[in-house]
Design a protein around this nucleic acid. Sequence first.
DNA 1: TCGCGCCGGCGCG
DNA 2: TCGCGCCGGCGCG
Lengths: 319, 319
Amino acid sequence: MAKPVLKVKKDKNGKNCATVPCIEMLSYVYEKNLPLPDKSFNEIIKDLQEETKKVFAKTKPRPKAPTSNSFNNCNGRWAEYVFGAYVWNYLADKNATNKQNNDPIRFVYVKLPTNDSKMDAWISLLKKEQYDTLIEFERDDTDKQVKAAGHKAFRLCSSNPDSVILKFEENDYIQYGLDSMKTIDNLSGANIKMMDSVFSKLAGKVTIEENLKCFLSIKNSIRPDRRYQFVHEGDDVKAIIMLLCTRLQLNVGNISDFCQKRFYAFSLNGFNGADENCMETATTACISSPVMGLIWCVDKLFSCLTPEEIKNDMDVIMI
Amino acid sequence: MAKPVLKVKKDKNGKNCATVPCIEMLSYVYEKNLPLPDKSFNEIIKDLQEETKKVFAKTKPRPKAPTSNSFNNCNGRWAEYVFGAYVWNYLADKNATNKQNNDPIRFVYVKLPTNDSKMDAWISLLKKEQYDTLIEFERDDTDKQVKAAGHKAFRLCSSNPDSVILKFEENDYIQYGLDSMKTIDNLSGANIKMMDSVFSKLAGKVTIEENLKCFLSIKNSIRPDRRYQFVHEGDDVKAIIMLLCTRLQLNVGNISDFCQKRFYAFSLNGFNGADENCMETATTACISSPVMGLIWCVDKLFSCLTPEEIKNDMDVIMI
DNA sequence: TCGCGCCGGCGCG
DNA sequence: TCGCGCCGGCGCG
């Protein structure tokens, strides 16, 4: 992709101002290759920031330099695509091995979109019966108990996790227009688009018991308040799985066992003991039910400092 | 309190740098009076930022001006103390009315500390039996199921809510060294200290069924990710109440009903429809249990733009 | 336009 | 020193 061209505008104070073109910068810097696997995510992001500052410095009229805050969103997206590409390739490799071994199972990395409509919520991946079961669980303000409590609705709410790993048989994979052997060798605009396009191809094709491997959520860095975002996403995922398992005959065996290994958190800048302790939190969905065993919101928090560490972490997850 | 004196240090780039003295600024600006009730929290915080910048500008050697980020923590604390003082006075007024009516009930606003040790977790307010019940619920890595799942522990984890409103009989109130009629007319250092000191006076004195009115958590502004911090705190509080109610004979009647009106969220900069929808989220603790009725993580999200709006909101809560 | 989900840089104990 | 919990300023669709 060509060097990004900034649109310089005046801000309210009359200063020249430009937006950091986050996706364009990524595909400009990594058009030909992925970041080296032994470079830390820290360094990869620092490099992208430096390249961005150069583009700002060469633009006329010169916009004011981007602040720390203006990189926050970019840092997150940059990390997600780099991380995602390496997981994608890990799975392509696994798929190739499976093919060699006449194992029909193929895995796919689905980068989840922003959840700003029902269509974009990850549950819209589910086949109609399961999706409908979740929608039927919800109650609106015509419900007696909801009204009596002075509420407007009763439902589960969460932001989408960053990604989900699904599994299909090779035939389904092809039918959905996906190539299970395709690797990602660079972050060109086309590859970014490809990663983003998987979600809509798989909408309505997924069942919890056949196709769901696990969710992954990634953070560049953790803070004591933001780490509970991991916990809530995991809690929500587990609650949804529990609901489906208890309301439909899914033949998944023990529900608590089935809920295990379904939600993983990654920190690309390490974490401390308190962060790790927090991830040992129970899902509240299991504590009040005498029939439910132990279920955790987050199955593991990984410290993943470089792309090359992804392989070991994925080995733990995919076992 | 005297005008704050900044300690100017060199940062790693050799620039003169100083910390924003958040609590000192608050008690310097509001030593004689509370902010006017019809001033927006936005304006109150902007004023405090302006006063801070003046102190920076008059300091020699002149430190670099505080950035947006350096106010984040201050904005939160400033809002919590101003909000807290007005709720405190609302309760003092209610206590006076109760006294007039020969009603022995007195309410107290407890600003909760940072939860960085077991002693600081809000559950340490609970009497021994209830506290121990919660600790006994936890499992460590000597537990078979915990070990089998590859985890280190099984427990509930959350940050402390910002505050809790408790109720006692007047006699207890006095015994614990509290004055139920005391009002807060300014944010002098002494008053800030007084608000902070209530928690430790009430540690070990509280039961869920007799003394807990509700929790309040306050945010200056909401973001789509940060709003789930409200949800998780509420979910955690409700799960703890449910646990205590199911494991001890508390005679609270229907548990779902008892869980209602226990956790409220406040946004001091308003919210949008999506934020409000998110607050209609079920506690996952109730969805998997056939014996549990509907329970919400957050009982209501209030938009509270000025201190004078606190009265109406508290009227809704305290009814 | 605005909703999503991103995250660094704090002040304090 | 470091852990807590704070929150504004984004880029993008």
